[in-house]
């Protein structure tokens, strides 16, 4: 290991943490943005995420290929998403409640079938060494960027652009804002929502695959600490904007690194409060940027949670 980096460890940890920890949040919140923009809310992505983590790990253990693991996770996520989308198209079925039940179902299945994969080690997804220019190993480690993070960053820009400029983006937005308007345009809102929820599920499962195949990079029943649920909440925080999701995920990841890194440089009192930083910060920003005048700008009109 290299020499002392002292207090520089804190900003470095925040940068490194933002890159390492944010990826699951990015994927789940981007997926949920697509779903919610279409007028549905899928609160069950936590279950999809955990099931995706298990599937990716299990397939990677069995085949030795992380990419096959990732693919299997995405497929499982699509199944969960389509199931949610299909069941919620029936009248009077509450999408939030189904989401909560799906959360139990997904986690339960993941734990049930994941038992044999707790012991074996799976290969890890590759990372790109963006820190090659530095001679400091800590900087090199912090800048080891996983490909999924880069894909997530690219996707958030792409989605932001696509919502504004493509026909598919327009269709999703119209369906999300008014089912009646969509029908008038000859669009079947339920089909659009079905697809949007399916894609959302695939994204969430990929977020889970990142947890099990890269960071922290192992499978056990405690692998997720509620990232899936938190990411769904971050979508509201990001006001259904893909770029906002990316920023919120970075903020969350970076702020989460504050607690451990402060202890490592000797700030040892009150660590529970430091660990609460991501939540306090998010809440503070929400309070500061909301106002009753322009309530929930960007909120899809059909969304049950904001009606």
């Amino acid at each position: 290991m290299a020499g002392e980096i002292g207090l520089w460890g804190v900003p470095l940890a925040i940068l490194g943490g933002a890159i390492r920890v944010s990826t699951p949040f990015i994927f789940v919140s981007l997926g949920e943005t697509i779903t919610e923009r279409s007028g549905r809310i899928n609160l069950g992505l936590e279950g999809t995420l955990v099931f995706g983590a298990m599937t990716a790990y299990g397939v990677a253990v069995e085949t030795g290929s992380t990419w096959l693991g990732l693919l299997a996770a995405a497929l499982s996520g699509i199944c969960f998403g389509l199931f949610h989308g299909w069941i919620c198209k029936f009248p009077k079925v509450n999408d939030i409640a189904i989401g909560i039940a799906m959360m139990l179902f997904g986690t339960g299945l993941a734990f049930f079938f994941g038992k044999p994969f707790i012991k074996p080690s799976a290969p890890h997804l590759p990372a790109i060494a963006f820190g090659f220019w530095s001679t400091i190993p800590q900087v090199q480690a912090a800048l080891d960027v996983n490909v999924l993070f880069l894909i997530g960053a690219a996707l958030s820009v792409l989605l932001w652009w696509a919502f504004k400029n493509t026909r598919a983006g327009l269709i999703i937005r119209v369906v999300g804002d008014s089912s009646d308007a969509a029908r008038a345009m000859g669009i079947n809102p339920n089909s659009v929502r079905l697809l949007a929820t399916g894609v959302g599920g695939a994204f969430a499962a990929i977020g889970g695959a990142y947890l099990s195949l890269y960071y922290p990079g192992s499978w056990n029943e405690r692998i997720s600490s509620g990232q899936g649920l938190m990411a769904v909440a971050l979508v509201i925080f990001a006001r259904w904007n893909p770029l906002g999701c990316f920023a919120a995920a970075l903020l969350f990841g970076g702020a989460g690194a504050l607690g451990p890194s402060l202890q490592s440089v000797g700030v040892t009192q009150g660590y529970y409060l430091f660990y609460a930083t991501p939540y306090v910060l998010t809440l503070a920003i929400m309070i500061a940027t909301s106002s009753p005048g322009r309530s929930l700008a960007g909120a899809p009109g059909e969304l049950s949670i904001t009606k």
Binding site: A233, I236, Y275, A276, Y279, S290, S291, R294, S295, L296
Partner: peptide
């Protein structure tokens, strides 16, 4: 009501904050 902060996300965030406070 007074600041239009979505209650779903604020209540979830505040649950995490409450648990941290309790532990502290």
């Amino acid at each position: 009501h007074y600041r239009a902060v979505n209650e779903t996300i604020s209540s979830l965030l505040m649950a995490y904050i409450a648990i941290a406070l309790m532990n502290q």
